[in-house]
């Protein structure tokens, strides 16, 4: 990041925090919390250790949901991209399931995974899997389907075939779009985990928000929101890093 971008970014935050502070001046605990109250709340929940349990619970669910979605979604999407028949059969189904918010599946997920160990975690992971799965499948499908024919033809002319063809031609050429899809999916999964934990489970940052609300501690609510933002940002930066290194190696880094 250039010094100028860093500076401007800081100015953006400063403007926001200042207007937030002015708008909430003189508020008590229980009212809309201001930045100072939020920081004090943050220090308190971090000190009590509650926060870390909840952070770990949320990150754990997202990590599993996302990895399962990537593990199943990428191969499936690439197959859809490569075989038009398969795509024509299943893509309409995928596209019609995609707009359903995963939260709507919550009651079914709870019942589906009921009665076994860690069932509330499994239900949440299932929702996260759904939320990440569709963007990943869609990105992988279109990445492979839109492969430049000239790559394919020239590779064939050089006699590259089978697994080597997949590894040396299809994968590198579709990688940029798949990685963008993964990054997008991770962002969606993070938004969904917080929403899902507000309804179904008894740990995690979403639970922290709802539980603090029940406890009439709005400063803990805003503190949890700050943590949600920070971790969301970190996850996105990590994915951007993976994306950049993977692309740079192939001489395809953007700008």
């Amino acid at each position: 990041m250039s010094p100028r971008a860093l500076l401007l970014g800081t100015v953006g935050f400063a403007i926001f925090i200042l207007s937030w502070h002015l708008a909430t001046l003189g508020n008590q605990i229980g009212d809309l919390p201001g930045p100072a109250m939020t920081v004090r709340g943050l220090v308190q929940i971090a000190g009590e250790g509650v926060l870390w349990e909840n952070v770990v619970a949320s990150v754990f669910r997202v990590a599993w949901g996302f990895c399962l979605a990537a593990g199943i979604g990428i191969p499936l999407g690439m197959a859809f991209g490569w075989y038009p028949r398969l795509r024509e059969t299943f893509n309409p189904l995928v596209q019609s399931l995609r707009p359903i918010s995963p939260i709507a599946w919550l009651p079914f997920a709870v019942i589906l995974f009921g009665g076994i160990r860690m069932s509330s975690d499994l239900a949440a992971i299932f929702l996260l899997f759904l939320s990440a799965f569709f963007p990943i499948v869609t990105a992988s499908t279109s990445a492979v389907a839109s492969l430049d024919l000239k790559y394919i033809r020239s590779a064939r002319n050089f006699g590259v075939d089978g697994l080597a063809f997949f590894r040396r031609v299809v994968l590198p050429a579709s990688l940029p779009q798949i990685l963008t899809g993964l990054r997008l999916a991770l962002g969606i999964a993070w938004v969904v985990v917080v929403a899902a934990e507000m309804l179904g489970v008894e740990s995690g940052l979403g639970y922290q928000v709802m539980d603090s609300r029940n406890a009439l501690r709005m400063d803990f609510v805003s503190a949890a929101m700050v943590v949600i933002a920070a971790i969301g940002l970190m996850l996105d930066m990590a994915m951007a890093r993976v994306e950049a290194t993977a692309l740079a190696r192939r001489g395809m880094s953007r700008r």
């Binding site: 870390w52 349990e53 770990v56 619970a57 990150v59 754990f60 990590a63 599993w64 975690d121």
Partner: peptide, 14 residues
């Protein structure tokens, strides 16, 4: 990462 966060979650929450 997955293994680490799983163990941590099991320890802290379960």
């Amino acid at each position: 990462f997955l293994a680490g966060v799983t163990l941590l979650h099991g320890w802290l929450n379960l």
